[in-house]
Nucleic acid binder design. Sequence first.
DNA 1: AACAATAGGACTATTTTAGTCCAATATATG
DNA 2: CATATATTGGACTAAAATAGTCCTATTGTT
Lengths: 156, 156
Amino acid sequence: MLRISKLTDYGTLILVHLASVAPNKPCPASEIAAGTGLALPTVQKVLKKLARGKLVVSSRGADGGYRLAREPDAIDAAEILDVLEGPLAITECSHDDSHCELESNCQVGGAWQKISRAIRAAMTEIRLSDLRNPPTEFPLRYTILSESGHLGRTDK
Amino acid sequence: MLRISKLTDYGTLILVHLASVAPNKPCPASEIAAGTGLALPTVQKVLKKLARGKLVVSSRGADGGYRLAREPDAIDAAEILDVLEGPLAITECSHDDSHCELESNCQVGGAWQKISRAIRAAMTEIRLSDLRNPPTEFPLRYTILSESGHLGRTDK
DNA sequence: AACAATAGGACTATTTTAGTCCAATATATG
DNA sequence: CATATATTGGACTAAAATAGTCCTATTGTT
């Protein structure tokens, strides 16, 4: 139903890989490719994006490579999506600065925006360290909370 | 960051429109196009999908058209996405029956799957009736709850 | 019979995504 | 300083998904 691109998926694999190697010495793209089973050119492409997005830092030259810019628990899923997918929102007009010609007739109003923001908030709480390792039972559960109580269950 | 297609967005507009007209007599596509400001051929295409997905029922012939298959509060956002986007999951291997060549090396394991399911669960609680009208303040909030407490805040 | 609708699908154009490759630059080391 | 190792930036192509339009058949009403 909702979809992330393959590149984003690869990106998380790569980040998870980086999270599981020695954080001191940089890890070259070739090693990451070998470690993840992904094609080298693809890995290089994704790493460039990750570096531009400041999720990893690079060192050039011999003995160079990439390492995480921060601790795995200080990188969240929303950031990863932002860097690899761009700050695209769930619909065109979820952009804060977008102009929607239908706006005047648009009954939906800000509903998708709200949903989008809500999902984003949830993604912010998922950290790279949580993505690591097959979660045999990752007791993750989302609930819609509503002050007015008409959506889902309330907080107490 | 996450994205739904334009068609899906149109679909929700159309459904919301249908929810706001007399539920007894069918509403023809042309009228919906006029009411939403969308192009007729596009509206027709989306309506066909919605009909196949059993979210609307159609009557053919003169005085025909479409009406909601159920009450607006009995249609949820997850269904809408399923019908209009297909049952695509957040990643390729989120499909229950997919085979991922990387599986053996895949550190991420089922994380995206879990996230996907969680988002889906949340979407299930958002109903068509909630999408209606500009939500001036739609007090929607998602929270990640974790039994083990290492993700977000816990239930108590 | 004539008209008003949907059904189904073909079709094209556009855009996005994936994936590869190359030339330039930076760095460590012998 | 020469060489090998890496990243950087961007160009480029191919493939796939998306958007949008249109045509023909069928169904139902009057």
